[in-house]
Design a protein around this nucleic acid. Structure first.
Lengths: 143, 143, 143, 143
DNA sequence: GTGGTCTAGACCACC
DNA sequence: GTGGTCTAGACCACT
């Protein structure tokens, strides 16, 4: 069962955090089609947010076509976002696990690691953007 | 000059996105002490958000002790978050750049890459948590 | 400005009624791209439902890609559902206006008229269904 | 035997849909006094909704004085809503059948047809409202 | 002053 | 007992 972690005070709405974490679990294959999400009540017990906030997130996931809310039964995954190559035992996964361990050991914090990966992704996206200069890019040094 | 990218419709407040992107640039060393952030006017021109929203973000950064707002002059970085080992030409950086390229080439999307790194970080943090089992963890498979 | 009519006690949720009436106005061309929907406050004043209920409806319309919620500004139509042939002065429109007048004059109530049109649509859809008997139909006499 | 069609995801409660469809069939004369409604079991087999939901709808119809639940026997129509002029072979019926066929042929969808008839009914009701100007109307363009 | 989030709690729909 | 609607009201994000 997925275990949501709500970071109150991050400024990101709680329901957005639930949606993001659910999508991440779908991408990673932690959640598969047919799996049941925790009931609103369970999430409330674990996170101290309001049941309506959980339902708001589940409704958003439903409209995205990822889950189905069945009254009286619960909320169930209806679509996978899993990628081949992202499995637990894939080479890419093993490599990044090793890299993260070395990065953390070198003193980088969780936020540093994510910042670095994001920066690298930005550069990659820039370099592989459709040749519409100034259009496809995210954050970068200009002059 | 840092180039903010606001994703309207991500659900994350615009000012939070500015703060996050600024912190990321500080961690990566893209922004250094003394550097000037874009004026609210410049950000407005680039992102179509309201000047007050930009100022709200800059005020948050100031309260975090990262920048200083000098009236009539602009906003300036007062503290670095740069990490040794995170530089452009560091081994860790080169390794992750290579890994990201292979991941994207293997068909993983930007979101897949971030999801995988986040998942790996969660596992790492779990395994290196202060020995309070069941406490320090973020999202995982239970039964 | 569209004027919502909420039939409390119809059993249909208020937010669904707002969505349906808005879609109908879009189909009929009463609402055009760029038009502003009433603010939640205005709807509240006119219908005595809660602002959150209105916002729930507007959010649904936004996710359907029909309107855009701009904070501080209002809610605006972004897509038309207007059909050529459905205009105020179209022949079809004039004909049905005439037919409705005669039906009502003959003693049929509003509900009778809608029931008849629905029944006729059901028959039409049955007869023009892709030949998957028993599949494409809505309500009909069997034995 | 009436054949209920439940549109899950329309937002309209299932039991309301059953009531509405039953009333429509009564108005059209598809159901006559003495006719037997399908048993809860039959409806369940056809629609995959819960028997309690069907019974809830039948109870509502009973309270409206339209049907009678005879334990062990079934549910029977006790009152007609049929209107003279609404019969299968009435002129009004033939006219609207023809009109619907032309509307659909002209590219209007089912929803467009219903939207147009509803709009025309609104205008008719406005014009023939009890002289309480500004009171009896449903949805319209103001200034 | 607009829309947006979240809370709290009552009541309903459905299984 | 599950999800669903609605209310009421506080506070926030943004123009």
């Amino acid at each position: 069962m997925i275990d949501y972690r709500i970071d109150r005070g991050s400024g990101v709405p709680a329901y957005v955090q639930i949606v993001e974490q659910t999508e991440r679990a779908l991408r990673m294959g932690f959640l598969k089609v047919g799996d049941k999400l925790p009931t609103a009540k369970e999430v409330v017990a674990a996170t101290a947010i309001n049941p309506n906030t959980v339902l708001r997130a589940y409704r958003d996931l439903e409209q995205a076509g990822l889950v189905e809310l069945r009254r009286g039964l619960g909320t169930f995954v209806t679509r996978s976002l899993a990628r081949p190559g992202a499995e637990d035992d894939s080479p890419l996964r093993r490599e990044v696990t090793d890299w993260v361990a070395r990065a953390r050991a070198a003193g980088l914090e969780r936020a540093d690691v994510l910042a670095m990966v994001t920066a690298v992704l930005d550069v990659y996206d820039d370099e592989h953007a459709s040749r519409t200069p100034g259009d496809r890019q995210r954050k970068k040094e200009d002059a």
